[in-house]
Design a binder for these strands. Structure first.
Length: 667
DNA sequence: GACTAACGTTTTTTT
DNA sequence: AACGTTAGTC
């Protein structure tokens, strides 16, 4: 097989990772150590050795990562081989398992997947129904508790908190009644099918003889169990990750998977990639000095291949306004250097709310910028509506999407009617759709409402028949339906600005167009809905093609790199975040800062403020205790005033910063 | 059933 | 400060 990579381009550690082809392998890949290159080379080598591409499975965390990996391998070996491999997320792998085998667990094979917003909608209703109004608890909090329980293998009925348990049981019943599964169920049920049905398990074990898992530090307990079902002896499994970059513990990621890998697979070959090609020694030394404060990690020290570098600046700011001004001015000044591009700069922050002032300051100076992952495409109202229409065309029994569009646009079926229909459906153990179709139910309503319901039922049933019986193009049917109900006109009426009008119109168009695209590739409406439910919201090319300074949360920055990084708001309460201190997860906050620091290739500036506007109120802030943990060999302490040339003798400044450093050390 | 006014809330985010 | 939610009114 033709291949386009050579061992010569790899360092010894990377080479041994590529060479370790058999049995369990764990690659501990520190930040910037050429992880992706190593993994793709390893798979390319696998193909070169004659492993059939169909037998290779690579699991990633996001769809984006999956397509990137496929592309890179395609660049090294043949495109054909790359396309014959399975590269996907855990969840889409599970959909593959379940679309074929879920009937063994008593579900119908045309189950629908509950998205995040579907789940929240369902839980909101359950809270109302179960009298959760007085218990001041939010739907998302309940769902997160249920998710954690599911991941730990706890039965909903056995959840300790009684009220959560009641809700969890009701939630499970609700899903079951709608023949729907949530994201956790995908993993849970796939594991169940594989563990309880030897024939299914053997099919998959024979199908995939070589398994690679990327971003292994982000996997949860359930994903680990699934992996164990999927991989049998002789355990040709390779996991890649970095425990120091585990920042998703709050949503169930188990660092234990990587810390105790040998417990799950026997005698693994462990390879450490510690040679960093990304950052200067100054950046790396500072990052190392921070992460050393975490206990119970896989000991590894990143070595810089790039010596020296600009010192790290830690800048004290009087307030968040000055912080924003300062960064904007620094970017302008930095652009003076020859060959510098806007894309070289990134501003990293802990919470999305912190970006606002930065945005304003950049906009004032006409500095182009791109916000990563702020408003997700699939959270947009019109997108959710149109998808809901598509969902009920595929399966009208899905209550959540049905209720969503029942009166959007308004057609005389309001909340009270929706309530009656829901109650009726529960009493008769059927879906809301069934209730709407049931003359016994509609007979209980006023003639006016009955007429509205009949019209709606005819509308949906008609469209569905055109797809199912007539085999019309689902995209055209959906578009026709939207036109008929004048959906777009209704949405536009609710817009305040022309810009918003255009945005919403585009959203509608994009969903329909995406469906049309799927259909043209021979995929079903069902497949389109699966993909949409599992899609990462990073509305792909759009953001990547955008030019400008990057504004991004620390979480979203993992895996990226920038020449010049500003990390703002290094204050106690933000980083570490108040809530994480309460939850006792300060280690993870330290890793978060570590991830942020290691994004920088050349220059790094950390800032903190004395005061900050918080919820419309001026509050005073304290420098983050993490600052005191940084080794100061390559660190330059300074302040807004000093940089702006305020009067101060060198001695005074030394004393001042000596004091601050002393105070921080005492913390 | 639709519209408006007061109210309360506010970490990170993928599947 | 800004957003979404809810309660009250027409």
């Amino acid at each position: 097989m033709a291949s386009n990579f050579s061992f010569d381009s790899l360092n010894p550690a990377q080479r041994s990772a590529v060479a370790a082809q058999d049995g369990p392998v764990m690659i501990l890949a520190g930040a910037g150590t050429g992880k992706t290159r190593t993994v793709t080379c390893r798979i390319a080598h696998m193909l070169e050795r004659g492993v059939p591409p169909q037998e290779i499975l690579a699991v990633t965390f996001t769809n984006k990562a999956a397509s990137e990996m496929r592309e890179r391998i395609g660049g090294m070996v043949s495109k054909k081989a790359a396309n014959e491999m399975t590269v996907c997320t855990f969840h889409s792998l599970c959909v593959r398992v379940l679309r074929g085998g879920i009937d063994r667990l008593g579900y119908k094979n045309n189950f629908s997947i509950c998205s995040q917003s579907d789940q929240t909608g369902m839980m909101k209703q359950l809270l109302v129904r179960k009298g959760g109004k007085d218990e001041k608890i939010k739907p998302d909090a309940v769902l997160s508790a249920i998710s954690k329980a599911k991941n730990k293998g706890i039965d909903p009925a056995d959840i300790e908190d009684e009220f959560i348990s009641i809700l969890a049981v009701a939630y499970e019943n609700e899903l079951r009644a709608q023949n729907a599964v949530d994201f956790d169920d995908l993993l849970l049920l796939a594991r169940k099918v594989l563990s309880e049905h030897e024939d299914v398990r053997n099919i998959f074990r024979a199908r995939y003889t070589r398994v690679t898992v990327d971003e292994f530090q982000d996997t949860n307990a359930l994903q680990m169990q699934l992996l164990q079902q999927l991989v049998g002896p002789p355990y040709h499994v390779c996991v890649v990750g970095d425990d120091d970059q585990s920042i998703y513990g709050w949503r169930g990621a188990e660092v234990a998977n990587i810390l105790q890998f040998e417990k799950f697979f026997p005698d693994p070959t462990v390879v450490r990639l510690e040679e960093n090609y990304r950052s200067t020694l100054a950046v790396l030394h500072t990052a190392n000095s921070l992460i050393k404060h975490n206990v119970g990690r896989r000991e590894k020290i990143l070595r810089a291949t790039r010596k020296g570098g600009e010192p790290i600046r830690i800048v004290a700011m009087p307030g968040d306004d000055e912080e924003a001004e300062f960064i904007a001015e620094e970017i302008l000044a930095g652009m003076g250097a020859h060959g510098t591009k806007w894309e070289d700069f990134a501003v990293l922050f802990r919470t999305n709310g912190q970006s606002r002032k930065i945005e304003l300051a950049l906009r004032e100076r006409k500095i182009p910028y791109r916000m990563v992952g702020a408003q997700s495409f699939y959270d947009r109202r019109e997108v959710r509506d149109v998808l809901a229409y598509a969902q009920i065309l595929a399966a009208p029994d899905a209550d959540v999407p049905l209720l969503r569009v029942l009166n959007a646009p308004p057609r005389g079926i309001g909340q009270s009617t929706a309530m009656l229909a829901t109650d009726w459906s529960r009493e008769h153990h059927e879906s809301v759709w069934d209730a709407l179709c049931d003359p016994n139910f509609t007979a209980t309503l006023s003639a006016k409402v009955r007429a509205s319901i009949e019209k709606f039922v005819a509308l949906v049933a008609g469209a569905k028949n055109r797809i199912d019986l007539n085999h019309d193009n689902p995209a055209e049917v959906l578009e026709g339906l939207l036109t008929e109900i004048e959906y777009r006109a209704w949405i536009e009426r609710g817009c305040k600005t022309d810009n918003e009008k255009q945005q919403r119109g585009e959203g509608i168009f994009m969903v329909v167009d995406s469906l049309r695209d799927h259909v043209s590739k021979g995929k079903s409406l069902q497949k389109f809905l699966d993909d949409s439910a599992l899609a990462s919201d990073r509305e792909d090319d759009d953001l990547e093609k955008k030019q400008g300074v990057t504004l991004i949360t620390l979480h979203a920055s993992k895996g990226l790199e920038f020449s010049k990084v500003f990390l703002i708001g290094l204050e106690e309460g933000f980083l570490p975040h108040t809530r994480s201190i309460a939850e006792g997860t300060k280690d993870e906050e330290r890793r978060l800062l570590y991830v942020g620091i290691t994004r920088a290739q050349d220059e790094l500036t950390l800032t903190y403020c004395d005061t900050r506007m918080k919820w419309g109120q001026l509050t005073s802030c304290q420098a983050s205790s993490f600052i005191g943990e940084l080794d100061d060999e390559f660190v330059n302490f300074t302040s807004y005033d000093e940089i702006l040339g305020a009067e101060a003798t060198a001695d005074e400044l030394d004393d001042f910063f000596g004091d601050i450093k002393g105070m921080l050390d005492d913390l």
